[in-house]
């Protein structure tokens, strides 16, 4: 489904709606280039699940884990950006983390989607219509953290089939 978030707060509201339906075993891929808001999305997602620790980018530590309050569950926040091979990805054993009571968010997970098994992909892109002076320079953050985003959500595998209708109706206000 294709959604539009007109601000950072809206992006995080979409994240919260997704978090409300997520359950242990889920692997959620966060795709999108530098500055697209993958970590911001993870922050909105984590806050909705009651994580009070600051959620920071796991680029250099590969996986950050946050125990969820009141549940024997853990939110794992991974980032594949520094990895070079699919066996590096396999080494993280993200599906094992998911299976052991974990909800796993994977930044840059789209580059190794085949190694992740069933998952939900959330793709974040700047909404070009929103920003007139969006030069095509390469500094990676030209569209501003608080700008509008196009958010595409797609399920790979059957894990979300039974929750899809619910998710669609929760996210109706953000439909393009």
């Amino acid at each position: 489904m294709l959604l539009r978030a007109d601000s950072l707060a809206a992006t995080q509201a979409i994240a919260a709606a997704l978090a409300a339906l997520a359950r242990p075993g889920d692997v959620i891929v966060l795709a999108g280039e530098m500055g697209a808001g993958k970590t911001a999305f993870a922050q909105g997602f984590g806050r909705a699940l009651g994580v009070t620790d600051p959620i920071t980018s796991p680029t250099f530590t590969l996986v950050h884990s946050y125990p969820l309050p009141g549940a024997k569950q853990t939110l794992h926040h991974a980032d594949l950006y520094r990895l070079e091979t699919t066996s590096d990805v396999a080494d993280l054993a993200l599906h094992e983390l998911a299976e052991f009571g974990g909800i796993v968010l994977v930044e840059w997970g789209d580059v190794a989607a085949a190694a992740l098994g069933d998952h939900l992909e959330v793709r974040l892109e700047p909404d070009d219509d929103d920003d007139e002076d969006d030069g095509d320079d390469d500094d990676g953050d030209e569209f501003g953290l608080d700008g509008a985003r196009l958010v595409t959500i797609e399920a790979v595998g059957p894990a979300w089939a039974t929750r899809w209708a619910r998710l669609s109706s929760e996210l109706e206000p953000f439909r393009c």
Binding site: T85, T86, A115
Partner: peptide, 16 residues
């Protein structure tokens, strides 16, 4: 005993 290894296609990262 992993599946055969492969390089990740980092076209996006290299470009940035």
């Amino acid at each position: 005993l992993r599946a055969p290894d492969a390089q990740i296609n980092w076209a996006t990262r290299e470009q940035r």
